[in-house]
Amino acid sequence: MPRWGMVIDLDKCSACQACTVACRMENNTPVAGPAQAAQGRAILWNEVIPSVEGEYPNVKMRFIPRPCMQCDDPPCVKVCPVQATYKNEDGIVLIDYDRCIGCRFCTVACPYTVRYFNWFEPQWSPELRAHLNPDPEVAPRPKGIVEKCTFCIQRLHKAKQAAQDAGRVFQASDYVPACVETCTERARYFGDLDDPTSLVAQLAKSPRAVRLLEELGTQPKVFYLREG
């Protein structure tokens, strides 16, 4: 079974946010609007987060594209009272939207704050609504439950089905999340971390490779290549 992981090269990333947009179109995350977004209510499974370090004149601006870390030891899964959030056999942390009770224990337990809550019934303008992804696996989530990045799990399912339909063996390269596919600078890599020949496994071993809050022991499967 592959251990899906992602590597993001911060030297290549131009903070264009194409990944954020691709993610929204692929996964049908609702539009919060400017007022709600200013209040911290935007739902962006893949957010590009600006971070200003230091003070004038020694200022450094960084941009961190931040999907779900897909931890091997996820603190969110530990605390869910109803097993609505779980790690599947592919090592991907998912949410059962039909089971979640909306207690938001997982959202406060995630040290990366990658989990989002549906404060209202999801909304789109008519133009955007016409372009919703018709895939039932990413049907809009109702109000009152939690959602987050799934590494585009629906794409994995489709890729496996396509391989089966074509009568061939499914390969790790058949599957890629929308943010990786769309990245304009080709800063994102995706694949099987357990396959030592895969590019993502090799990059994850690079001396430049770091993980966020590594010291917490959550074992994220998203790696960043530091700016050189």
């Binding site: 809550f117 549906n118 109000k143 009152g144």
Partner: peptide
């Protein structure tokens, strides 16, 4: 929905 509260992320 809970949006009528002052809660947000984080």
């Amino acid at each position: 929905g809970l949006g009528v509260t002052g809660l947000d992320r984080p």
